[in-house]
Design a protein around this nucleic acid. Structure first.
Lengths: 223, 223
DNA sequence: TGACAATATGAACATGCAGTCATAATATGA
DNA sequence: TCATATTATGACTGCATGTTCATATTGTCA
């Protein structure tokens, strides 16, 4: 029986999770991570359907059969990759939203966290955006729902911040949810721009704050 | 030899393009369009890799072999679909950019055209955004370059408008290219929101204009 | 109407790849 | 060191699907 399966092992792992991992378990997790890392390189470069298990095997220096000791199939491998990475990000972003002194501070903290986290993980961002935005054609089902839920949660918390700001008369009375969407849209636009051409138009949290919050027209020509 | 190939036919088609098409030619184009229409339904629903030629054949009510009379292979079919649709949109958007009285008017006209065109073609928008944003994993090469060029052209013209507005002291002095990106980001964010939940948060050109151009904060708490 | 050309058809073929499993390699511990 | 258990391996299999082509169907015109 392969390591890491079966009821007994699950119980053992549960127990160990609270104390410390056995060498076996550490190695198992290490190998798992190596596979995911190799898979990330390939998937982010060529997309789910243009990567073969052979390639992942070669890149990670395991045999094809070994991959199936860690993941039930290609789809599960992909899901694990996207979901586990996302689970690192989402709490960071959510936490950041609670860190400001006032509502503007919260938005700013969120922005900074967002930019930092994404800049540090550009390879993953390609995958994440492919799943979050655009067409999510990569897998059958299961990934969508889970990611969608987390994404909605962030949008919801973000619009709560806007809502509070509006109630406090800090912000103009726009639809808070659309404000959240708009902010996200600007961030993504800049991230894309940056991915396309990292040297081109540098941007940071300051710039996004100014663009988003300050008025752009000087004279009032709105009808 | 299938209809529509060969030097002679090309010359004939060229001549006819100026006058009118033969019945044969009209039928050929009609069938071609029907295939593309069926393919659009399927691709926009399931993505390039999850649609088979069999399915396209069934949906379009042609035989598999017939599809290959119109398109060299699956990839060419997909390319034709995306490129031809894009070629309808891009000129509309570009033209709209020249239609305003002043720079704000141009942006407004662009926005209205953008929203209208996209709303009328939601099925295609899914594909377009999958190719334009996010990961463009669908095909080898060839589509990317052409679409990218057209997309850059619009961004460039859009930032020219911002540049003129800044020079005229109509707009604050932001990087015009980033303004263009930001506007596009907001539009896309709202479009996505709309695709996800058409009843939820309605938006129109007015709203985007206000969100983009008007300041959002009431009191000045910027650092 | 019939003879020929143009076009459509879908069963069959070829290929690529996800997933398996008998065997090899390695680790364990007596 | 050896017997046994554990884990890794990659050649192989089965299937899905893009593409072809011999045949059937339809259109054309005398």
């Amino acid at each position: 029986m392969p390591f890491g399966c079966g009821l007994f092992t699950i119980l053992v792992r549960k127990r160990l999770a609270l104390k410390k991992l056995s060498r076996k378990e550490r190695e198992f997790q290490m190998h798992r991570r190596e596979i995911l890392e190799a898979a990330l390189d390939l998937f982010s470069e060529k997309g789910f359907h243009n990567v073969t298990m052979q390639e992942i095997a070669k890149e990670s220096e395991f045999a094809v059969g070994t991959l199936y000791k860690f993941f039930a199939n290609k789809e599960e491998l992909y899901k694990a990759l996207v979901l586990e990475k996302s689970k690192e990000f989402h709490p960071t972003l959510l936490k950041a939203l609670g860190k400001g002194k006032d509502e503007i501070g919260c938005i700013r903290a969120y922005l900074e966290a967002h930019i930092r986290v994404f800049m540090d993980n550009l390879k993953f961002v390609r995958l994440y955006l492919a799943e979050t935005r655009g067409a999510r054609f990569n897998i059958g089902a299961g990934l969508d729902e889970e990611l969608e839920k987390k994404h909605k949660e962030i949008l919801s918390k973000l619009s709560d911040v806007f809502k509070r700001g509006i109630r406090k008369k800090l912000f103009e009375n726009f639809d808070p949810y659309l404000l959240a969407r708009a902010l996200e849209g600007i961030i993504h636009a800049f991230l894309f721009q940056h991915v396309d051409d990292p040297e081109g138009h540098p941007f940071d949290a300051d710039l996004v704050m100014k663009l988003f919050f300050e008025r752009i027209v000087k004279i009032d020509t709105q009808k």
